[in-house]
Simulated scan of single mutants.
Amino acid sequence: MRIEVLTLFPEMFQIFDTSIMGRAKEKGLFTLNPVNIRDFSKDKHKKVDDYPYGGGAGLVMAVQPIEDALREVKKVNSGPVIFLGPRGKTFTQEMARELAKKEELIFLCGHYEGIDERLYDVIDEEISLGDFVLTGGEMAAIPILDSILRLREGVLGTDDSSVEESFSENLLEYPQYTRPENYEGRPVPEILLSGHHENIRKWRRYMMLRVTREKRPDLFARHILTKEDRKLLIKYDPEWEKEETSE
């Protein structure tokens, strides 16, 4: 996968040179190239912003540096241009999966009071991290890029740990335990020590349902229960069937 990120702070993306992402990058599983928008400014002071027409607080990112940067980037990257901004759809795991299927992506990180409206002519998609304000698009781009790249084959290593995890099927992940077996009177559930793989699988599936129902009822409401899900809920939580019947 090839990714170009148009930014005012290229150094922030050095985080992808470390840990799991750093190893995947060294293996050539992806390239991530920060492009400094200031390099394309025609202003002698390399300005990329200006005061808004009509007045108002703050500064607005100008058209010229960004459009010229995009023209240059598109010579080597034909992927969609994604802007990190408040008008976009809130980022989800499903969006991460869809973007992870692409071989090329271009991200644009905004700053100040936003971008000149005319730049939307060259933006293919806008994504928001959530309903809160950040100091710049870089702070949103980093977790979004991480969530996309970790879904690419080989990035997480040889295991398949990205399959059964939080937000798959609109479910949170099941509880995890490690040594010691008993810590200050808090033991690991016996079923996990049984060695019976099928029973463990079923218990974990039930716990995904239970944890999601308790912690994120909004996600649970979107999950489509399978026949096995219903059997497990009835087996481990008889009250659930009474509640569902009464609804």
Rank of each mutant, 00 (worst) to 15 (best):
D146C: 12
E181V: 12
S147N: 15
F167Y: 15
Q176F: 03
S166Q: 09
R150Q: 09
S166D: 09
S147M: 14
P180G: 02
F167I: 04
L171W: 05
E153F: 08
R179L: 09
Y177R: 08
R152A: 05
S147H: 10
R179E: 03
D159C: 11
S161K: 09
P143D: 02
R186A: 05
S161G: 15
D146Y: 12
E173Y: 07
L172C: 08
E184N: 15
L149V: 13
S166E: 06
G154T: 02
Y177M: 09
E165T: 13
G154Y: 03
I148Y: 10
G154M: 00
G157W: 07
S166P: 07
D160K: 13
G157Y: 09
V188E: 03
I142M: 14
P187G: 02
D160F: 02
P187A: 11
P180F: 03
L171S: 09
S168L: 12
R186N: 13
I142P: 01
L151Q: 14
S166F: 04
G154S: 01
L156G: 00
R152K: 15
D146W: 14
D146V: 15
P189E: 04
N170Y: 14
P180C: 05
Y174K: 01
T178Q: 00
P180D: 07
L149A: 09
N182I: 14
L151W: 11
D159M: 12
I148Q: 09
E169S: 11
R179T: 08
L172F: 08
M139N: 07
S168C: 08
P180M: 02
G154R: 03
G157Q: 07
P180T: 03
P143Q: 03
Q176Y: 06
S161N: 11
N170E: 09
R152E: 12
G154A: 01
Y174C: 06
F167Q: 08
V155W: 04
Y174A: 14
D160R: 12
D146E: 15
V155E: 05
E181P: 00
T158M: 01
V188H: 01
R186D: 12
L172A: 06
S162D: 13
A140K: 09
E169H: 14
V188K: 01
I142E: 00
S162E: 14
Y177K: 08
V188S: 01
S147W: 10
G185D: 00
E153W: 06
N182G: 00
L156S: 05
D160A: 06
L151G: 13
S162A: 13
P187R: 03
E169Q: 13
V163Y: 15
A140W: 09
I148E: 06
P189M: 04
E164Y: 13
P189K: 06
G157F: 03
A140D: 06
D160Q: 10
D146T: 14
R186K: 15
S166R: 07
L171E: 11
E184Y: 11
P175H: 04
G154W: 04
I148W: 10
Q176R: 13
